[in-house]
């Protein structure tokens, strides 16, 4: 209950600001309200889409399967699977951290995990739909491609660095393991 109350504070606070504005600066309040309604309509248009897609993915793509597919993947195939698996499931990024940690322990490479986490955070499909709608296809497409390239580069740098300067014992042992298991399963 308390949590819910905390969440409602923001909209209520905003409502109060609108009320104050309506008294002191009615014109500004009217302008703001119009913008809000315009955006509300636009967002309403894609809300069912985004949330239903999230629901369907949540139901049909079990997270333990993700773990299984990713753990086995390596090489280019593993990288592609990592990206795909990052874009598909739903949930906040901190859900993905323990998954990534578990996968590293099971032998997944650092590159793949950086791709997985990066895709999870930056290349989600419902998010991309919203992006295309409000930013346009060229923006979304350019960002997608550049982000993918950056993630790959980041992963390679991190793999090289963490191999030479390991952080934790399990991290280096699993990284070495993944290098040995370079071929496909």
């Amino acid at each position: 209950m308390k949590k819910r109350a905390g969440k409602v504070i923001l909209p209520i606070g905003i409502l109060l600001i609108y009320a104050v504005l309506a008294i002191w600066l009615p014109e500004a309040a009217e302008r703001s309200l119009k913008v809000t309604l315009d955006y509300a309509l636009e967002i309403l248009l894609i809300v069912p889409l985004v949330f239903l897609l999230m629901g369907l993915m949540e139901v049909w793509i079990p997270k333990d399967k993700v773990r299984q597919w990713l753990g086995k993947g390596s090489g280019v195939k593993g990288a592609v699977i990592s990206v795909l698996m990052g874009t598909l499931p739903t949930g906040p990024l901190y859900v993905a951290f323990p998954m990534a940690a578990g996968l590293i322990r099971k032998g997944a490479g650092i590159v793949n995990m950086v791709l997985f986490l990066g895709a999870w955070a930056a290349l989600k499909i419902p998010q991309l739909i919203t992006e295309i709608k409000f930013m346009g296809l060229p923006f979304a497409l350019t960002r997608f491609i550049l982000t993918l390239a950056a993630l790959l580069l980041t992963g390679l740098i991190m793999e090289a660095f963490l191999r030479r300067h390991p952080d934790k014992a399990w991290l280096v042992s699993s990284a070495a393991e993944s290098n040995k298991n370079g071929s496909n399963p």
Binding site: L10, P11, K34, V47
Partner: peptide, 21 residues
């Protein structure tokens, strides 16, 4: 998920409106 996001969504909509208004 929609219910969970709704308050933040409404609040941010208000902020967008205020910013641009």
């Amino acid at each position: 998920a929609l219910l969970k996001t709704a308050p933040a969504l409404l609040g941010m909509l208000g902020i967008v409106g205020l910013t641009l208004g």
